[in-house]
Amino acid sequence: MKIKRRPLMIMIVMLCIATTLSAMTAEQIMREADERQTYDSSRSSGQFKIKDRFGTKVSTFDAWSKGADESLIEFTSVAERGQKVLRTEDSIYLYYPDAEELIRMQGSALRQGMLGSDISYEDMTGGKDRLSQYDIVLEEDSELVFGRDCHVLTLTAKTRSVPYPKEIVWIDKENFIVMRAEYYTKSGRLLKEMETLSVGTLSGIEVATETRISDKMKTDTETIMILDELEVNIRIDDDLFSLDELSW
């Protein structure tokens, strides 16, 4: 009888070992998500659909990035044509065609919405290496968001240099795309929400192509960011992210 049970026991033990080995830690999940969002270099184009109490307006953009810390957005829609937002390792600069100087965003100005959207300049400042900035805890290993099985992680800031002291993120188990995120103050007040409405494949990479961001401190507003094109690991001149180049 004992002999007959042994294969079953072995199978259960083997299954447990396999499950343990395959279960990812919170840090591993975060690292995977961060790595998948960060490219050596990229060029993209898309649009912001900004909805407020007066209606919806659309602004189109081209964007370039290099690593996790350098990015440039240039607006191409008529009303904002030529306006640029440059993010360097430690600062954000705005370029306006009719202004003779670059405007460096700092202090409370960073909390302003970019083009009046729900995305603040501050949202651009947080580095993509969240492992070094947050204590990360895996809250739930499985929760469905828009029909996708997700990990649920709670991120608590280790430093004051990040825009939000606390975040809860739902990360797709399969493609490690952040399907939903909530951003809180230290006292637990919800400040902002993000949801991935659509996932698509651009240049062979699975990415969030439609994302909704909603600033909970405003009434009746939301911004939908649509990614139309994406090229990654392309050659980009280093000068593109310099202040001199920004003025041209």
Binding site: K57, E80, D98, A99
Partner: peptide, 18 residues
């Protein structure tokens, strides 16, 4: 003196001019 100003526009975006 020359001074740069920022404001919200009628297209509900932002603009700056010197």
């Amino acid at each position: 003196d020359r001074v740069t100003m920022l404001s919200t526009t009628a297209s509900r975006g932002t603009n700056a001019i010197t």
